[in-house]
């Protein structure tokens, strides 16, 4: 396994504190949300941080499984932002979000059935994305509160195999979100083992860790808590299986704590890498 960088999903609340860190402290790279943060260009306040640490880019608006296709205008905008960020790679979620005619969108990632027609849609869209952005494309396993394919004794293996087949169709690397996986397994009552056994580990380039919450019915990937302990434990298990892993990123989207707490989380991750 090559050296793995431990990084932080960059949020505006942490910019000043990050810039004030002594050299050699803090994350080893930062992940920038390409859709929100740099719309219209890289804001001045972000430049000091981006100049100091390598950047990887993450998105939420692509919807690579949309049968209606992806907008070339959107791809061109993303490509320009990735260039401005000098991003190592671009990651997105394996999902669809649009109604079939493309005229309306969900605010959440909807699951894709792994059938030949949908694989073809993802392959076609991914080819356009790769051509537009000119850097590696990673796809993330999103959390699926609807539980598509989560029934039956072989659900975990089938879901893991589906993810692998979509990665192959897209010619993409994997952003393995261990928290999403743990929460889906918890909600579906299945074990993560067969899912992980079905994964093509040579494609895993990045890992996400975050914390969700139980909303009274299901676990939700709200990114509003510290790293889920089960996901952190799983990191230790999967590290030897991922020869091409380059980065582990800690995310927090709401109820964002001070930077010190995020740095503690990074240190916990580093403890698993040693």
């Amino acid at each position: 396994m090559a050296r793995v960088a431990v990084g932080l999903a960059l949020r505006p609340q942490h910019l000043k504190a990050l810039a004030a860190l002594p050299r050699g402290e803090g994350p080893e790279l930062v992940e920038v949300m390409v859709d929100d943060t740099v719309a219209g260009g890289v804001p001045e306040g972000w430049r000091a941080v981006m100049a100091r640490w390598p950047v990887v880019a993450h998105g939420v608006d692509l919807a690579i499984g949309d049968a209606a296709g992806v907008s070339q205008r959107y791809l061109d905008a993303v490509a320009a932002r990735l260039g401005a960020l000098s991003a190592w790679w671009y990651s997105e979620h394996l999902c669809f979000r649009s109604r079939g005619d493309g005229a309306a969108r969900l605010w959440h990632f909807a699951p894709l059935p792994c059938d030949p027609e949908t694989l073809a849609v993802v392959a076609q869209n991914a080819a356009r994305v790769r051509a537009a952005v000119g850097r590696p494309l990673l796809l993330e396993n999103p959390s699926d509160v609807l539980g598509w394919g989560a029934d039956g004794p072989d659900a975990a293996a089938a879901l893991g195999l589906s993810f692998t087949q979509f990665l192959a169709a897209a010619e993409a690397g994997a952003l393995l979100d261990l928290t999403n996986l743990v929460l889906d397994a918890r909600n579906g009552g299945w074990s993560v083992g067969p899912w992980l056994d079905a994964l093509d580990w040579s494609r895993v380039v990045e890992i996400h860790l975050a914390g969700g919450h139980f909303d009274g019915v299901l676990w939700v990937d709200s990114h509003s808590r510290a790293i889920d302990p089960e996901a952190l434990d799983l990191l230790s298990e999967v590290l030897p299986r991922a020869p091409n892993l380059r980065a582990v990123i800690v995310e927090r989207d709401s109820e964002i704590p001070p930077l010190a707490a995020m740095l503690d989380a990074l240190e916990a991750v580093r403890g698993r890498l040693r």
Partner: peptide, 23 residues
């Protein structure tokens, strides 16, 4: 499909929309 899953999807979508609108 369990209606509670549909409701959870809607709540999660609302949460994500709120995050995007307030960032």
């Amino acid at each position: 499909l369990d209606p509670r899953r549909v409701e959870a999807f809607a709540r999660s979508a609302a949460h994500k929309e709120n995050l995007r609108q307030t960032q």
